[in-house]
Design a protein around this nucleic acid. Structure first.
Length: 424
RNA sequence: GUGGGCGUAGCUCAGUCCGGUUAGAGCCCUGGAUUGUGGCUCCAGUGGUCAUGGGUUCAAAUCCCAUCGCUCACCCCA
C-alpha cells in the first residue's frame, strides 16, 4: 500500500520526462503564436461549478467526480475538465473587459474517478484553449487550426478530424422532439442505456455503438434537416474556412460529446494508434456556458487534448524527440582526501555551464571510472595526490582515451576548448 | 458498475497443464582479474513472504476457495 500509487494514477519517471518537456514546449510556443495566453486555475473548485457547467445528466457529473468536503462543510471537487474553471476565472476577474475576444489556454491535471484502462486514467493531463467572445465560425476554424498545428508540430502523422453541428437553443429542441417521436415506438428495441437516454438526453442515443441501436439510429432523422438558419450558416462557413485552409475533416452527424454545454460546432480528433480510447482531442462551441455560470450572454468555443494519449501516440509512431544529453564531466578522486576538492571543482564547472557529477560513495578509482563510463560523460577529471601538489589534475577524454595534466584553475577553459575542437 | 486476461528477483520471463531435492535464466546491480584509469572478456557475489489468506496432501510456485492488485474491453471520455 505504501509503495503503490493510487489506482489510475501514474508516476512520470525521469526516463520519460523528455516527452513531457517536448510536448509542453510545443504547446506553449504554438499557442502563444496564435495569441493565446496561459491561465492557471486551481486544481479544485466548488462542486456546483461543474454541476452547472458540465450538466447534471452527464456521466462526468453523475459518477466520475472526486468530490470532498472542507472543514466547514463546503463541497469541493477536483476539476474533471478545464473549461468551466477557465470560464469561472474569466468571469471572476472580468477578463472580458480587457479585450472583446479573450483567448486563453491551460495545461494541467484533471481528475475523473473512472475505472482505468489503456489511455484512461484517474489523474491525467490536458491542455486546452478557449476563445471567449465571438459568435463567428472564424474562431472555430482558428481553434481547429491551432490544434492541428500542434499535432503537426509534435510530429503526429495520422489523425483525423471529425466534425458536427449540434444546433442551438432554437433548433435543437425541435430536433430532439422529432428524435423522440421517431424512437417512441422503437424504445423496446434499444439497449437499457439508450432507454434511459431517451428520457434524459435523447441526443446521446446517436452515439451508442450497440448494433441493435445502430440499426434504429441509421434511419433516424438527421440533425442537418433541422438546424436553424443561423446554425446552418455557421456550420457551412466553418466548413468553407477549413476547406480553404486545406484541413481535412469528416462530417459525422452522430458525433455527440459527453458534455452538455456544446452548441453548434462539435468536433473530435482521433488517432488510429490508440485502439479503444482513440480521441486525442475534442472540443466545440459553448455559447450558453458563460451565461449559465452567471455572466452576460457571451459566445465561446474551445478545445482540449489529453497529453498522455498524445505521448502514447508519439511512442507508437516512434517520433524522435530531443532527449537529455546527459552529463559532460565526471570527477574522480583517488582517495577520500580529494573529495572536498572534487565538490569545489564540480561547482566551478557547473558555474561555467558544464554539467558535472562526482562520486558520493568513496569508491575505488576503478569503480569511479566505470561509473563515468556508464554515465557516458565526455570527460573525466582525476584528482590525484601527485598532481594536486602542483594544483593540477588529470583531464581525460573518454572518447579517445587521451589525457593531460591541467591546472585546476584552467579546467573549465580547457574543457570548453576541447569541446569546440570536437565540434569542428 | 459489467465482463475477459494476468500476478515467480529491480526488469523480461522459464517452471504451473501432469504436486516431489536447496525455485532458475538473461539483463541490471556490486566486487575482483598486481602498482592511480572506463568500455570488451572472464570470474565471483547481492537480490525472491513464488500477490495475500485459507484449504487438500506425507509433500504446494504447481491443485481448490476467497481476497487484493494489475491489465484489457464495455460504458464514457482526453
Amino acid at each position: 500500500m505504501l509503495t503503490k500509487a493510487p489506482k489510475g494514477t501514474n508516476d512520470i519517471l525521469p526516463s520519460r520526462i523528455d516527452y513531457w518537456y517536448y510536448v509542453e514546449e510545443i504547446i506553449k510556443n504554438t499557442l502563444q503564436k496564435f495569441g493565446y495566453r496561459e491561465i492557471r486555475t486551481p486544481s479544485f473548485e466548488h462542486t456546483e461549478l461543474f454541476i452547472r457547467g458540465i450538466g447534471e445528466t452527464t456521466d462526468i457529473v453523475n459518477k466520475e467526480m472526486f468530490t470532498f468536503q472542507d472543514q466547514k462543510g463546503r463541497s469541493l471537487t477536483l476539476r474533471p475538465e478545464g473549461t468551466a474553471p477557465v470560464v469561472r476565472a474569466y468571469l471572476e476577474h472580468k477578463i472580458g473587459r480587457e479585450n472583446p475576444v479573450s483567448k486563453l489556454f491551460y495545461l494541467g491535471s484533471m481528475f475523473r474517478c473512472e475505472k482505468p484502462q489503456a489511455g484512461r486514467f484517474r489523474q491525467f493531463n490536458q491542455f486546452g484553449l478557449e476563445a471567449i467572445g465571438s459568435p463567428f465560425s472564424l474562431v472555430d476554424a482558428e481553434i481547429i487550426a491551432a490544434a492541428v498545428a500542434i499535432y503537426k508540430k509534435i510530429g503526429i502523422k495520422d489523425f483525423s478530424l471529425i466534425l458536427n453541428s449540434v444546433g442551438c437553443r432554437k433548433c435543437r429542441p425541435i430536433y430532439l422532439k422529432e428524435l423522440k417521436e421517431y424512437f417512441q415506438d422503437k424504445k423496446d428495441l434499444l439497449c437499457s442505456d439508450c432507454q434511459e437516454r431517451y428520457h434524459k438526453n435523447p441526443l446521446r442515443i446517436l452515439d451508442c455503438k450497440k448494433t441493435n441501436c445502430q440499426i434504429q439510429i441509421k434511419k433516424s432523422p438527421s440533425i442537418y434537416d433541422y438546424l436553424c438558419e443561423d446554425c446552418s450558416e455557421h456550420f457551412s462557413k466553418l466548413k468553407k474556412y477549413l476547406d480553404h485552409l486545406t484541413i481535412n475533416y469528416q462530417i459525422n452527424p452522430l458525433l455527440v460529446r459527453g458534455l452538455d454545454y456544446y452548441t453548434k460546432t462539435a468536433f473530435e480528433i482521433t488517432s488510429g494508434e490508440l485502439g479503444s480510447q482513440n480521441a486525442i482531442g475534442g472540443g466545440g462551441r459553448y455559447d450558453y456556458l458563460v451565461e449559465e455560470l452567471g455572466g452576460s450572454p457571451t459566445p465561446a468555443v474551445g478545445f482540449a487534448a489529453g497529453i498522455e494519449r498524445i505521448i502514447s501516440t508519439m511512442e507508437k509512431q516512434q517520433i524522435k524527440i530531443p532527449f537529455w544529453e546527459g552529463l559532460k564531466v565526471f570527477i574522480a578522486a583517488t582517495s577520500e582526501k580529494e573529495t572536498s576538492i572534487a565538490l569545489q571543482v564540480a561547482l566551478n564547472l557547473r558555474e561555467n555551464n558544464i554539467s558535472t557529477e562526482i562520486d558520493f560513495l568513496n569508491k575505488s578509482l576503478k569503480a569511479q571510472m566505470r561509473q563515468a563510463n556508464k554515465l557516458q560523460v565526455s570527460y573525466v577529471i582525476i584528482l590525484g595526490q601527485d598532481e594536486l601538489v602542483q594544483k593540477s589534475a588529470i583531464l581525460k577524454n573518454m572518447l579517445d582515451g587521451q589525457q593531460k595534466i591541467v591546472n585546476l584553475d584552467d579546467l573549465a577553459n580547457e574543457i570548453i576548448s576541447w569541446q569546440q575542437k570536437e565540434r569542428l
